[in-house]
């Protein structure tokens, strides 16, 4: 069978570049550079690898503001076939419950799919809750935190990377898998294809109404969790004592600092 693969991906600000405005208690992302969520690139590479082997199609879905479009075009340049951006003011403020619902409705609207591939977690909120939530809305099995995915007939076989151990699971498709960051080397985009995608408007945009979702099912209104407050992650105060002098002097000072930790 030639699998119809969906890759679900999001764009995140670089974590090091986001700060908290202590007065308004809101996130300051203005200066932050955005990137494709790193594990989602690995998810896309898994999908494209399966397509290289088995044929089939790779469709991208992403829920987010219009600025995501450029990133979807990059992914089209890497070899995905089509891209759908779920963009609507009503989607703003979604926790993982309506996020996974919105993505599930979009995937169901595609008219048939075999495998949904997500990243393990986002680099911003890092909940990892969207892939299992999505699988539940779709009513299909899930295999999370995987570093290898194979397809055989209508079965998906994936290896969960569980710290020091692993387990290999198989399930009939359709199914949802989530891929761990760094599990492969994502390919480079073909920039002619990126340009073609941008010029000819390959990225389609769907709204809540087009997904048949009401305003109280999506975004902030459709969420259960409420952000009560935002605070700085208690910074650990470190001494930041720089050893000075020549290489030799530094080594002597370092050895002295470490000697208390030596046991005869």
């Amino acid at each position: 069978m030639t699998p119809r693969i969906v890759v679900s991906l999001k764009v995140v600000p670089k974590p090091e570049e986001v700060s908290l405005n202590p007065e308004t208690r809101t996130l300051d992302r203005a200066g932050a550079e955005n990137v494709l969520n790193p594990p989602d690139k690995n998810a896309l590479e898994v999908a494209l690898g399966l397509k290289d082997t088995h044929g089939g199609t790779v469709t991208l879905v992403s829920m987010g503001p219009p600025l995501f479009k450029d990133y979807l075009e990059l992914c089209l340049g890497m070899g995905a076939d089509q891209a759908i951006l779920l963009s609507d003011r009503l989607f703003a403020g979604a926790d993982t419950y309506p996020t996974s619902l919105t993505l599930a409705r979009a995937i169901q609207k595609l008219g048939g799919y075999d495998l949904v591939i997500c990243g393990e977690e986002s680099a911003d909120a890092s909940t990892g809750q969207v892939p299992p939530g999505l699988a539940e809305w779709l009513g299909v099995p899930q295999i999370t935190f995987v570093d290898e995915v194979r397809v055989q007939g209508d079965t998906v076989i994936a290896r969960r990377a569980l710290g020091s151990s692993y387990e290999v699971l198989e399930a009939e498709m359709p199914a949802v898998v989530s891929v761990v960051v760094g599990s492969n080397e994502p390919r480079f985009p073909d920039f002619d294809r990126v340009e073609a995608a941008a010029k000819s408007g390959w990225v389609k945009v769907w709204t809540a109404a087009e997904l048949g979702l009401r305003d109280d099912e999506v975004g902030l209104k459709g969420s259960y969790t409420i952000v009560h407050d935002l605070v700085e992650g208690e910074p650990v105060e470190r001494k930041r004592h720089f050893l000075q002098g020549s290489l030799e002097e530094k080594i002597r000072a370092l050895a002295e600092a470490l000697e208390p930790f030596l046991r005869p």
Partner: peptide, 22 residues
């Protein structure tokens, strides 16, 4: 843990409730 997050994420949608992470 891997399994705790796998399970809780699935249950939150099945039970229609909120889930906070890590």
């Amino acid at each position: 843990t891997y399994d705790g997050r796998d399970l809780a994420g699935r249950l939150a949608v099945r039970l229609s409730t909120g889930l906070t992470a890590n």
